[in-house]
Amino acid sequence: MSDTVKLQDAANGRAPAPSRQILALGVIAVLAALLPLVASDYQLRFVAEILIVGAAVLSLDLLVGYGGLVSLGHATLFGGAAYAAAVASRSLGADLTLMVGIGTLTGMVMAFITGIVVMRTIALFFLILTLIVGQIFWEIAFHWRDVTGGADGMRGLPTLSLNLGVTKLDLSSSFALYVTAAVLAFAAWAVARSFVNAPIGRALIGTRERQLRMSALGYDIARIRMMALLASGAIAGAAGSLYPFVNQYIGPNSMQWTFSAMMVVMLVIGGVGSLYGAFIGTAVYLGIQTYISSYTDRWQLVVGLIFVLTVMIMPRGIVHGVGSLFGGKGKQ
């Protein structure tokens, strides 16, 4: 069985052969464990950021890759949860479990509100309506100066910690943040994967492929989509809850539609419908942005070219494109 076929199966929501998957997970786990030995503080924190943003991009993949619902308001769920966590941390302290709990809940509530509004739309209408709803949330965050700090954002947040009952573990170091982000990223991936492999996930793919037939079969399409939105919101929210503590800062940019668009770009570069491609796309995008821009003012040109080439040559993302280079041509 070639890699290509395996990846295509993954894109269709079917689990690849378990033995290979365990092997792949093992390799990744070893690499992740070795990273802190070779990477500097700065690099570890950068990787942590990639994992956190990547988890949010992964949650977007649930909608785009499996539900065929392209959202331009996904940053709202991520950023909204980040704000909620940041605001709560000021009075309650930044305990990890509390933050993730608040973030997950906020992400789900905002996904639910968005879901009610966008429920009846699909395709471009869905795209624009999520954009509009997202921008309304953004406007609120931008103008609610007493709580969110407005355009200046919130700074001076407490550092992240984990309450272990007897002792409090400080999570502010780059290493601790990296470990936290890695655990979050893995959990996000596991949750998303079990979602797409569960009957609800299969049904979601059905609504993408054959909406009319699915409703004829008695599926409640609105309910299926709402479930996907909620799952996606929960993951994005959990990821968002850690985001303020990467830099002890959160600002309105993290909720703006441009951030949503960036997430879509990351997802496409990495590979739609593969879940783990989200992390690769995020790493490629943030890597280019952070490193190429040191050498040329034309970094946006580079990002644009890479993106367009990806869409034209490897429409299913780098993961799949590279795979098909080595594993022969896959079925289209």
Partner: peptide, 11 residues
């Protein structure tokens, strides 16, 4: 189409 033309617009 959205993805292609968005990428082009960035360029």
């Amino acid at each position: 189409q959205v993805l292609l033309t968005y990428g082009l617009s960035v360029i």
